[in-house]
Amino acid sequence: MAPSSSTLIDCVDLTRQYTLGGTDRSWLNFGSSEIQTVTALNGIDLSIERGEIVGCAGPSGSGKSTLLHLLAGLDTPTRGTVSFDGTKLGSLSKRARTRHRLDHVGIVFQHFHLLDSLSARANVALPLVELGRPKAERQQRATELLTAMGLDGRITHRPTQLSGGEQQRVAIARALVTDPDLVVADEPTGELDTETGKRVLSRFREVATEHNAAVVIASHDEPTLAIADRLVRMRDGNIIDIEKQDVVGETPTPTKSAAGDTHQTDGGSVETPESP
C-alpha cells in the first residue's frame, strides 16, 4: 500500500528477532547450531498519520518498546520495512539513521537517560549543539521548553538534583527541542503526578496538532493512553487490536504513579553548569 500524503510512517511485515547467547558458534560445532531466537515483533503492519497520537498498550514483553525503537530508527527490523515519509529506514546507514533521528525524531526514554554532568538546560539543548545552532538560540529554546514543563526554577540543576518526575520532564523537553516529526515516548508519565502528567499529555497533543507531528506513546497506564487517537493493543509481538478513540474535551487524567513527583536532591551543593 502506497502511503497517503498525510502518512508519516508505514510499517509492513515488521519483524524483529533477537538471538539469545549473542554469538553464532555453529562453525565451532561442525554445523550443529545452538542459536536460540526470540521473536519480539512478528510481522506487524501499521501506518501512522501526521498529527496523530497513537497509544501502544500491552503487558511487558509484548513488543511495545521494540516497536518504538524500530519506529525511531534506533534498531533495524529482521524482516519487513519501516518507511518514514517514504524513506525505508532499514536501507539507511547507521550514520544516516543517527542524522535521521536528530532531524525528525524525539525520543522519551522510560529511564530518562539524561547526562548527569550537564544541567537540565544543557541536556535539553544538546541536540541543538549538534545542529550548530547559536548559543543564544539554544539557551532560549531550552529555557522555553523547560518553563512550559513547569521547570523554570530548576533550569540550572543537574539531573541528580532533580526528582524522578522532574527528570522525566527534562527528558520530554529534550525530545521536543528540535520540533520533531515523530515523538516516541516510553512510559512518559510513569514518574509524574496527576497534574504534571496532564500537562505533559496536553503538550503532546499540542505537538501533534500545532506541529503536525505524530506521537507514539507506550504505556501501561490506561488513562495516559486515553489521549491517543488510536490505541494499538499488543501481545507476544503481535497487534491484537487497534481501537479508534474519540478524544474530546479536556486532556485525560493519568493515574498517579506510586513514585509521585517527590522532589529528591542529592543534598550537595548546587552546581549550576550552563547550557551548551
Binding site: L118, V129, G132, R133, P134, E274
Partner: peptide
Amino acid sequence: ERLRRLAGLVGVSFRRTYIRAIK
C-alpha cells in the same frame, strides 16, 4: 554552523570533565 557546533562541543566537554573531576 560547524564552528558553532565545535564551540558548543568544547563547552560541553570541558563541563563534563570538570564535573567528573570534582563530582
